[in-house]
């Protein structure tokens, strides 16, 4: 079961909920993976402190022109949607930093003058977090107390996160629950991170920015036909979404997390709030219960 946490607006609490949910899941004995797709600024590792066991480069396949073969016919320039290829009178120029790696130019070149070359854009790392062992006050039937960890890191100055996100997704292990921490925004990186999830949970905050982006995120996820729930963060216990945009009944608010200085302080030093605050742990446990119940209902 894959659960993706997205939000639209940044800083609403995606990562806070995602890492603490991973802790909650592993402590009830579920095989758990946490996957950080926010490759421009992955920060789940700060909380989960994984021991890394693998670090792999991610490269984009970019063209290199073999000038001895090129006839400057211009086909490669015409198919390139990204202005990465300039066709001049007597030569073809490639700007690898503009290339999205679609491979179109390799296919259309009639004389095989486009050679495949690689450009390093980031890394994928995997590891194991042992920060939340089972036991003590909780029972952990079958759990190993380890959270499988995967994250992508986009190279500084690179503008295209998608190749790194795709590579991260290839390394997602098979677990009872896979928690995907998505990048903020509602464009391609969010869509690619959410794609393939069984359920999306949108974490929002009751501010104009938060709600505006929630509305866009909802539309995006519905377009992808994935079930969606909402968590309202830093809000009053009886807060409701404004009437109108959210009234069509498709998404429900499954939790309200109150504004709390204690939680903010734990977060700010990289602590896991559900290990330190029993009250916060109860909120997260309830979210997990609702996710598991929805999964059972979906199977029926």
């Amino acid at each position: 079961m894959r659960i993706a946490f997205a939000s639209g607006k940044g800083g609403t609490g995606k990562t806070t909920v995602a890492v603490n949910l991973a802790v909650s899941a592993v402590r009830v004995g579920l095989g758990t993976a946490y996957v950080d797709c926010d490759v421009e600024e992955p920060n789940g590792h700060i909380y989960l402190e994984p021991e890394k066991d693998l670090s792999l480069p991610v490269a984009v396949e970019v063209p290199e022109i073999d000038e001895s073969l090129c006839t400057v016919c211009g086909e490669c320039g015409r198919i390139c949607e990204f202005n990465a290829i300039a066709v001049l009178g007597d030569r073809v120029m490639v700007f690898p930093e503009l290339c999205h790696g679609c491979g179109g130019c390799f296919l259309v070149c009639p004389v095989d003058a486009m050679k495949r070359s690689g450009r390093l854009v980031g890394r994928v790392e995997t590891g194991v977090s042992k920060i939340a062992p089972c036991g003590e006050d909780r029972t952990a039937p079958g759990g190993e107390g380890e959270i499988s960890f995967v994250q992508g890191i986009l190279k500084v100055k690179e503008a295209m996160p998608l190749p790194v996100i795709r590579e991260v997704k290839k390394h997602i292990p098979d677990r009872d629950i896979v928690i995907i921490d998505c990048p903020p925004g509602n464009s391609c990186p969010m869509v690619e991170s959410v794609r393939g999830a069984d359920r999306v949970i949108l974490v929002t905050e009751p501010t104009p920015f938060g709600l505006n982006d929630l509305e866009i995120a909802l539309k995006t996820v519905r377009e992808m036909d994935i079930p969606v729930d909402i968590i309202m963060n830093r809000c009053d216990p009886d807060a409701e979404l404004p009437a109108g945009a959210f009234d069509d009944g498709g998404a429900r608010v499954i939790a309200r997390i109150p504004e709390s200085r204690e939680i903010a302080e734990i977060n700010s030093r990289g602590g896991l709030a559900s290990l330190e605050s029993p009250e916060f742990a109860r909120i997260i446990d309830k979210i997990l219960e609702k996710i598991l119940r929805a999964a059972r209902e979906a199977r029926r």
Binding site: G77, F82, N83, A84, A86, V87, L88, G89, M93, F95, L98, A159
Partner: peptide
């Protein structure tokens, strides 16, 4: 253009 406007314009002018 979403990117590469200068490359495209250079090609056009040339």
């Amino acid at each position: 253009a979403m990117q590469g406007a200068g490359v495209q314009a250079g090609e056009l002018v040339a």
